[in-house]
Design a protein around this nucleic acid. Structure first.
Lengths: 235, 235
DNA sequence: GCAAAAGTGTTTCGACTACACCCATGT
DNA sequence: ACATGGGTGTAGTCGAAACACTTTTGC
């Protein structure tokens, strides 16, 4: 049925409604590996699922995705972006459901403790996933592509880092995202040339003997950079 | 409500279903200006709308978007890509509707004649739009951003060109997309360096005195190029 | 023969790549 | 003193940008 002007109201009544769900691909970085947060489905079987929920009558899609993320992790102000709507008629065998997938980038350190115990949630390497519910594996795969694409064009990697981090830590993140090994000289030159990082006086202890300087993101400049990209770039 | 394992079936029953619509931002290029195809809403008022329709029970989202595009234009095999899901609770004042917006790039020459008369459809400059229904203006705006972004990274502009076209015509398209004026020497070097164009023996007549050579896309190489990008790039 | 658009080449500059050595410190 | 990871500089290459003149042909 095409929607057009004659008999508009009548057309609304003839339509089939569907359930609308939201599923979040929550990505985090533990210092070595890019990980996705999954919750256990069913008690016995080894099936895992993305964190998801239903769209409520008074919410926008973004609000619903934020709410669901909050209920699981207790986090707000998280990087969260709509990924894609999935609508295969049989994707959910129980009822036809259209799912709008979001992807979230979180600072694992932030989270850790706060993970709601109500859901059996666990971090999995994105390169080694258990069997996933419905089309959730497609969602994860698409989110990795999106992350790779975006990280190549925008300084988005900081979203996965804790407040303070070292350049070698950040390089490990990019190595994990692209499953490669960047040259550390070129990497640090490129990252520092953005002017988005502030060098702190403090050095990381315990990991290496020399210790690496901590940096933090210059939030004002970072916001500016994001905004000036957004004006040009897809959403 | 968060969706998780206990009492799954009961949870499905408590949920509110919504209508799911599809709206297509159909972009075309008439040789001078980037245009979007709109249909008239209401008989008297000057309100226009994107071409849209409802999701049917047996369709995927992509299928529904293709169907709706076909019903209006008679075209198949059109470049059509999911843009974004719009779900503000009040976006459609009659019934809560989640709309999945798609954007389509069509070759205006192809179309022209075939535009279904059942809908009063008209091309508008994307830089000079009439009042639009609901949030359709947001959708158009986002689609332009997406087009700009994608066209900068992929050889997507050909989708808006007729089978045969000249380099100056193609330059005009890119000028229109970015609302600027590219250097013709750099432009033609860059386009030709992709190796995706085949020079024909034929010259365009009537427009300029000298006449410009026609080119066509090397479809095999074009497919290859798109696919090798897709493997790396967001969706 | 002239006006109007098509077509083409060179230089400059900045960005990315590849690559190797010294530094600081904990043991 | 030595092992481990941190930090830095240079030369070469490639792609992007700036820029102006000649060619064709319809009138």
């Amino acid at each position: 049925m095409i929607r057009t002007h004659p008999h508009m109201l009548a057309q609304y009544k003839q339509q089939h409604p569907y359930l609308v769900a939201l599923d979040s691909i929550i990505l985090g970085f533990d210092g070595e590996t890019l990980r996705v947060l999954l919750v256990k489905r069913g008690v016995e079987e080894e099936t895992w699922s993305l964190m998801g929920g239903w769209l409520q009558p008074d919410e926008t899609l973004d609000q619903a995705a934020n709410r669901i993320l909050y209920e699981l992790t207790g986090l707000t102000n998280v990087y969260l972006e709509q990924l894609h709507a999935f609508g295969d008629p049989h994707r959910d065998p129980i009822t036809r459901t259209v799912s709008v997938a979001y992807f979230a980038l979180i600072k694992v350190a932030d989270d850790e403790s706060r993970l709601s115990d109500a859901y059996q949630a666990q971090w999995f390497s994105v390169y080694d996933l258990p069997p996933l519910l419905f089309d959730h594996a497609d969602m994860v795969e698409l989110s990795i592509k999106r992350l790779r694409y975006k990280a190549a064009h925008q300084p988005i990697g900081f979203e996965l880092m804790p407040e303070k981090f070292t350049i070698p830590q950040l390089k490990k993140l990019y190595d994990a995202i692209y499953n490669t090994d960047f040259d550390k000289r070129n990497f640090s030159r490129k990252i520092l040339s953005t002017g988005l990082l502030i060098k702190l006086d403090e050095k990381q202890k315990g990991y290496s003997k020399k210790g690496a300087f901590y940096y933090q993101v210059d939030k004002a400049k970072y916001q500016q950079a994001i905004e000036s990209l957004l004006s040009f770039i897809a959403n």
